[in-house]
Simulated assay, not measured.
Amino acid sequence: MTTLTHRSRRAEGRSTDRKPTGEEDAAADRDLNDEDPDDSKDIRLTLMEEVLLLGLKDKEGYTSFWNDCISSGLRGGILIELAFRGRIRLEPPSMRKKRLLERKVLLKSDAPTGDVLLDETLRHIKATEAAESVQTWIELLTGETWNPFKLQYQLRNVRERVAKALVEKGILTTEKQNFLLFDMTTHPVSNGTEKQRLVRRLQESVLERWVNDPHRMDRRTLALLVLAHSSDVLENVFASLADDKYDVAMNRTKDLLDMDPEVEAAKAKGTEMVWAVLAAFNKS
């Protein structure tokens, strides 16, 4: 069970408004679909959409009622997606704040991304008078805070909004199901090919294409493995594998997730936010 508890922190650091360079924008565009030349016709999905798609039951169209981790995982995905798109970054390490969870999230650009959830989060980050850490932002966006003055930062109906985006992309459909005492809107998978392609990509990343070095992995694939673990949907990724391959995939993923986020983040700035999100969930 993954829950994030709110911890008060002294307000330090202010966000900056530097616009992303053309090079950063181009890199962000490539990040949306740079996994494999053979997958160039894939529908472009955000990390949040991929996490939810992995967690959904195909025919039923909803996530497990026992999964209370996916809400926080989706918020972590929002922060990573914004970092990949050049909108936010971690403040540089200093003598007083070396560790990932001590460093604040800073605004690089408030330029709209075109995604409702990402843009809403950007507005929240811009509106804060004092910068907050990755762990605190996940807590605030999830609504896990005892501070009534910060409840305004909670993102509401995130699963439903991500599901609707997948409906618009033709991957899910919308239905009504009766659960005795209430009716619930569900979103069964209508385009199974896209989900199968996503699952296959993750399986291959830890089997046929395993590189045994996170810094040689595609960073969106690395982020998705971290988020799938944090959202408790990783089992869904490997469930279809034969027993021997399942064991290999799970062991390699465990080795990856057991790496020290502090050490790995120092090796490559392009994945700092990924390791910071993993550090936040490891601490929870």
Score class of each variant (00 low, 15 high):
residue 159 R to W: 00
residue 133 S to R: 13
residue 114 G to T: 09
residue 262 E to P: 03
residue 208 E to W: 02
residue 211 V to M: 07
residue 93 P to R: 04
residue 257 L to T: 02
residue 41 K to E: 10
residue 185 T to Y: 00
residue 148 P to A: 03
residue 89 R to Y: 06
residue 179 F to T: 08
residue 89 R to F: 03
residue 257 L to C: 01
residue 84 F to H: 11
residue 248 V to K: 14
residue 67 N to M: 10
residue 280 A to E: 02
residue 72 S to Y: 15
residue 186 T to A: 13
residue 262 E to A: 11
residue 8 S to V: 11
residue 222 L to G: 09
residue 61 G to Q: 13
residue 235 E to C: 06
residue 277 V to K: 00
residue 278 L to Q: 14
residue 279 A to R: 12
residue 63 T to F: 09
residue 83 A to T: 07
residue 241 L to D: 01
residue 274 V to I: 15
residue 22 G to W: 14
residue 145 T to S: 14
residue 187 H to N: 14
residue 206 V to M: 07
residue 215 H to W: 04
residue 270 G to W: 02
residue 38 D to I: 13
residue 250 M to C: 02
residue 85 R to S: 12
residue 179 F to I: 11
residue 158 V to D: 05
residue 117 L to K: 02
residue 6 H to S: 13
residue 221 T to F: 01
residue 116 V to M: 13
residue 173 T to Q: 14
residue 88 I to M: 04
residue 171 I to L: 10
residue 275 W to K: 05
residue 246 Y to E: 01
residue 21 T to V: 06
residue 50 E to P: 07
residue 87 R to P: 07
residue 158 V to L: 12
residue 182 F to D: 11
residue 72 S to D: 12
residue 128 T to R: 15
residue 261 P to I: 11
residue 232 D to G: 10
residue 14 R to N: 09
residue 170 G to F: 01
residue 80 I to E: 02
residue 100 L to R: 03
residue 73 G to P: 03
residue 195 K to V: 10
residue 200 R to W: 08
residue 22 G to F: 12
residue 141 L to T: 05
residue 123 R to Q: 13
residue 180 L to W: 12
residue 12 E to K: 08
residue 46 T to E: 09
residue 254 K to H: 00
residue 24 E to G: 09
residue 276 A to C: 05
residue 63 T to P: 10
residue 115 D to M: 06
residue 214 P to G: 08
residue 155 L to R: 15
residue 128 T to S: 14
residue 154 Q to G: 08
residue 76 G to H: 05
residue 165 A to M: 10
residue 171 I to R: 00
residue 13 G to L: 08
residue 54 L to I: 10
residue 188 P to Y: 12
residue 263 V to E: 15
residue 51 V to T: 10
residue 226 V to N: 05
residue 117 L to T: 08
residue 119 D to S: 04
residue 75 R to C: 13
residue 141 L to I: 09
residue 43 I to C: 05
residue 194 E to W: 07
residue 40 S to N: 11
residue 258 D to R: 00
residue 105 V to K: 02
residue 42 D to Y: 06
residue 283 K to M: 05
residue 114 G to H: 10
residue 243 D to Q: 14
residue 183 D to L: 09
residue 264 E to P: 07
residue 33 N to C: 13
residue 251 N to P: 00
residue 239 A to F: 09
residue 215 H to P: 07
residue 26 A to F: 02
residue 27 A to V: 12
residue 195 K to C: 04
residue 169 K to C: 01
residue 82 L to Y: 11
residue 244 D to P: 03
residue 96 R to F: 11
residue 62 Y to I: 12
residue 52 L to G: 01
residue 45 L to P: 09
residue 75 R to V: 03
residue 221 T to D: 02
residue 184 M to T: 10
residue 20 P to V: 08
residue 116 V to A: 15
residue 51 V to W: 06
residue 229 H to R: 14
residue 28 A to G: 15
residue 212 N to R: 14
residue 23 E to W: 12
residue 43 I to F: 08
residue 195 K to W: 01
